[in-house]
Amino acid sequence: MAAPPPRLERLVLALIPPLAREVVAGDLCETFENPRQYAAEALRTVPFVIASQMRRHLNMPALLLKLSLWWLFLGWAALWLLPVLMLADAYQPAARPDAHRAIRQTVALGVMAMIAVVNLSMNIGFMLQTGLRRPEWLALSLFGLVVPALLCGVRTVLILQNDRHLPLPDTVSGAELMDAYRRFAWRARLHNIAEGAALVAAAVLALLWLGRSGAAVLTGLYLMTAVYLLARGAPRPLPTAGDFRFLQTRYARALARQHRLRHFLWWLWCAPAMMAAAARMHEKPLVAAASAAALALVCFVLAAINREDGGRVQEDIGALERLTG
């Protein structure tokens, strides 16, 4: 049986967004005639697939919120980030990262940070003697060496935590799938009620304590989101009629929708911290550097949480799509 040359196939696989990779690459492989035809077909197909994945995974509220926050730091240059953010959504991973690899990376980064910190602290005396005027910068450098290892640790904890999540079995009956959907819908409803109430409380606190124009915008956004969460946030109840495939589709869509909501909410919760960091960016260089470091930390943690959560949801959707009733 003719198959595409491995190198060419690897190149094409890298271009196809992960969530469509299996199906599109499979179709290209099935219609393979010769490398030239394969490459031409891939070139004609992949741009449509990328555009479709960008449209499918466009989380408009989260995208607007991210752009607004970046606008605080970069001004109108933040608009250049728009295609990058959209492509990042289109190329979101189809599975969660490997826990063992994450642990290895954390250990390696931790050892490297430790060596660097020990090396730096052994030479502090020499550096101070030779004219280091601002020891704060030294402290910030030490902090900068330790932070990547800490962040990597945070990411590993998140991955290990999600490893405890139980996937769906390979075969389930319609009634079992319906039960699983109802349990998921119930948990999502409770989660939305709790988060909606927390958003209302945060909105009131922001208005009472901060009382600035930025806080008013944030309060409005928090209240609007709380109303949406409480009124429309829960997964739709199942209709009385509907076969196994219908149930699978409904479940998969509800999972994807709840993930989009959570993605937006994580950014919304961290918006005050990012706004505070943005407000300090024009102060003294040391304060600005510390604010930039705090901003990088917040962005990294948010991205790690959303990537982890997104990977888990995509694994669940994949398992649902492979289920046989």
């Binding site: 049986m1 299996e22 492989c29 099935e30 479709s52 499918r56 495939r245 799509e321």
Partner: peptide, 26 residues
């Protein structure tokens, strides 16, 4: 993809096949 998002069609994955390099069909 667009019609699936509109709820006009539904999709699922088949068992992987050899002719597709061990990949599933949608």
């Amino acid at each position: 993809d667009r019609m699936e998002d509109k709820g006009l069609i539904a999709s699922w994955l088949s068992e992987p096949t050899k002719e597709r390099g061990g990949r599933s069909r949608r």
